[in-house]
Design a protein around this nucleic acid. Structure first.
Length: 260
DNA sequence: ATTGTGGCCTGCCCGC
DNA sequence: TGCGGGCAGGCCACAA
């Protein structure tokens, strides 16, 4: 599903949509417009403008308009970005690759004939206008050791839940959380505030390395743990039968031997 | 304030 | 071959 690596791909793809006049905005699905946004408002705010910056904070993609508002794109777990018919990501775990125009929830048509579309079969994503960027924590790709320590704080919540709290650390989804904790050798259910300094350093290194690696490999589903994340799966590191649990309300796979 | 839970969305996969 | 029940998880509303 789109986690930080996919949205980073979408952000880069979005750069192909910059400096092109938006001639038409099509938003047929009002459910997909969030924060009280109406189709009329979105059309009026963006038509005739150009996008001049393509940004990303965590899993939120931001397109700044030239002198106007910022358009926020959320991809949920099944959303794709298409620019001029090209997809930002080929393969998407749990989603579909079918070319189904009915899944296009919002389309910005450019005066030159091309377009930028968000296509989401399950309608779990959304489009916002001027989203509150302050609600998001520090981006997982650039978080510092001190930033991570502050994000975890003295919390008694499960480590994994805190890592996935977008208001603390932005961009970590279920697959990256499992992969990061696997690499760091930490039990997802540990209280977030219980990490010793050495464990915190390990977690920080693992988080940064995991996010960078998965961007390089091309998706959040390309982690080493991913292929073993299934019934009967064994730890790629030591061969132990993996443990499947619900932690922080999410399906969680971990190695009971080396994740402590 | 913090933490936990349930519901929403719907395509897809599995078993009958 | 068709059908129905689970399942996936990001996000939000709500409860304790």
């Amino acid at each position: 599903m789109p986690e930080l690596p996919e949205v980073e791909s979408y952000r880069r793809l979005g750069e192909a949509a910059l400096h092109r006049e938006v001639a038409e905005v099509v938003a047929p699905d009002t459910w997909f417009l969030k924060g009280g946004l109406t189709p009329e408002h979105l059309v009026g705010a963006v038509t005739g403008r150009t996008f001049d910056v393509s940004r990303r904070i965590g899993k939120l993609m931001l397109l700044d308009t030239d002198g106007g508002p910022t358009v926020g794109l959320r991809f949920g777990m099944t959303g794709r970005l298409l620019v001029d018919g090209h997809a930002g990501v080929d393969e998407l775990e749990y989603s579909s690759v079918r070319d189904e125009p009915a899944w296009d929830r919002v389309t910005f048509r450019f005066a030159d004939g091309g377009d930028l579309r968000i296509r989401d079969p399950r309608r779990l994503g959304g489009v916002l206008l001027d989203p509150d960027e302050g609600r998001l924590g520090v981006d997982a790709l650039t978080v510092t050791p001190a930033g991570l320590r502050a994000a975890l704080g003295a919390s008694t919540a499960p480590l994994k839940a805190r890592l996935m709290d977008q208001g603390r650390v932005a961009g970590v989804g279920n697959l990256i959380a499992d992969e990061t904790l696997y690499r760091a050798g930490l039990d997802p259910a540990r209280p977030a505030g219980s990490l010793a300094p050495a464990e915190l350093r390990r977690l920080h290194r693992a988080l940064r390395a995991t996010v960078s690696l998965l961007i390089e490999r091309g998706g959040s589903h390309t982690g080493d743990l991913q292929q073993a994340r299934r019934p009967g799966g064994t730890c790629p590191r030591d061969g132990t039968a993996l443990l499947r649990r619900t932690v922080g309300g999410r399906t969680t796979w971990s190695c009971p031997r080396h994740q402590r």
